[in-house]
Amino acid sequence: MTDDLHHLAAAYALDALDEVERRRFEAHYPSSEITADEVADFRRVAATLAAAESTPPPTDLRDRVLAQIAATPQLPPRLDRSEPAPTPIVRRALLATAAAVVLLAGVLVIPRLGGNATTDDVVSAPDAAVAVLASDTEAGSLTIVWSDEQDQVAIIGTELEAIDADSAYALWFLLEDGVAPAALFTPRPDGTISTVIDVDDAGDLTIGAPVGWGITVEPAEGSPAPTTPVLFSGSL
């Protein structure tokens, strides 16, 4: 597998993976096996191949681009690594992740560098149910892996839009006759997420098996029911 992933890093940097493999790769990257540096190096080579194809665009493109950006709002900056203290939502996400790591480590996991041991473990749970969520907007990509036995979800995503510090992404269980809250999460500043969240508290689930997932943006403390349009959804 290590060897396989290494070979995929180059293909990934060239956008030569299909959608499924791209997601699979992103779920394992960066890690101790595939470093961000390795992919960055390959991307730099790719950019050189791009530069060698330089062709001046039509003149009027410049005006159109500048007119369009003047009317396009910008996303907020990424949180700086040197920021003095994590915001409450980030801290909570960290705690949730840490709790999941501790729980898993106590039971069956030898943690590895790279922080992927936890997601790997949900993925390899015997009852793991994988759902690739679809989005109507270009809101990024999200894959949810759920283990009912372990009462955990692994949330793996990329290119997610940044949200206010007082908001969080909310994952909902879609039930036959309603929804139940499953987890709250906040992507990393670079728009990625790869985490495991304990869903033990979602006691509502005893009312029936979930049939799918939905994602909305909610206040950081969560909501009893979705308050914003569904960004992503998928069936189990």
């Binding site: 961000a36 730099r44 791009a50 996303l75 670079d190």
Partner: peptide, 24 residues
């Protein structure tokens, strides 16, 4: 370019140069 403008605040030259970022 519009996408680059939208997410420009997240650009980190330590990770990739502007050229590499835009090419990607």
């Amino acid at each position: 370019f519009v996408e680059a403008w939208r997410v420009a605040a997240r650009f980190d030259p330590e990770v990739a140069s502007a050229t590499t970022w835009l090419a990607t």
